[in-house]
Design a binder for these strands. Structure first.
Length: 205
DNA sequence: AAGGTAGGCAACCGCCACACG
DNA sequence: TCGTGTGGCGGTTGCCTACCT
């Protein structure tokens, strides 16, 4: 039975599935003119019978300039492993530290390659060690909540926590977690700072 | 050569937060 | 203040391909 709108007109079925080269071209052209915003109107303007969400996803994961595809280097893999250990399944944050990589690609890479690696490693290690690696999952489940929580928690050097004024152990939290600027690959210095910060939050719970 | 299976990846789904009227 | 629309995110699905029997 065909779907109809409230005024009785038939509801147009949206295109689904793989994108064609023509659709890609149309989308890229429209974004070049209007910018990557208002995805619903982009879809309409381009004459693409796609949802705004679908257009956004295609652009972000495939058409965007400077996207690197495939061939994840050992350095990048190591970084993903480290960041996942720290951040959990916060793929967008992890991707933010890997220029040219998308959250979807990293997520897929994790699920198809790295998760197996981890499982193999864990089966060779003691169970207690396995448990320790899962402590960061609290960061991934409800990202917004966690993000706001990070602004509320301050841990002092004597181990007590109190209302937070933007720093933990002299670490500027906002700066530390600002992934808006694409920089070079994650520096060891950043990792060190983040580990310190995370220990403050998790070490006293 | 044909059928079955597993892996990889693109795309979709559902939920949540935020902006705006 | 509330309702609605939109964007962003992580989880999941399903298709395609390579490999195995």
């Amino acid at each position: 039975m065909a779907l109809v709108m409230t005024d009785g007109t038939p509801k147009k079925e949206l295109n689904r599935g793989a994108w064609t080269a023509q659709e890609d071209q149309k989308l890229a052209q429209i974004i070049e003119v209007h910018g990557a915003k208002r995805w619903k109107s982009i879809a309409a303007t381009a004459g693409l019978n796609r949802s705004g969400k679908s257009c956004r996803l295609r652009w972000m994961n495939y058409l965007r300039p400077n996207i690197k595809r495939g061939n994840i280097s050992d350095q990048e893999e190591d970084l993903i492993l480290r960041l996942h250990k720290l951040l959990g399944n916060r793929w967008s944050l992890i991707a933010g530290r890997l220029p040219g990589r998308t959250d979807n690609e990293i997520k897929n890479y994790w699920n198809s390659h790295l998760s197996k690696k981890i499982i193999n490693q864990q089966t060779e290690e003691k169970p207690s060690r396995v448990a320790r690696t899962t402590t960061t999952t609290c960061w991934s489940k409800r990202r917004k909540t966690c993000d706001s929580e990070k602004d509320q928690i301050q841990v002092t050097e004597d181990g007590t926590s109190k209302g937070h004024e933007g720093s933990v152990n002299n670490i500027d939290v906002d700066e530390l977690l600002d992934f808006s600027v694409e920089g070079p690959l994650m520096s060891l210095e950043w990792l060190r700072k983040f580990s310190e910060f995370k220990e403050c939050l998790c070490g006293f719970s």
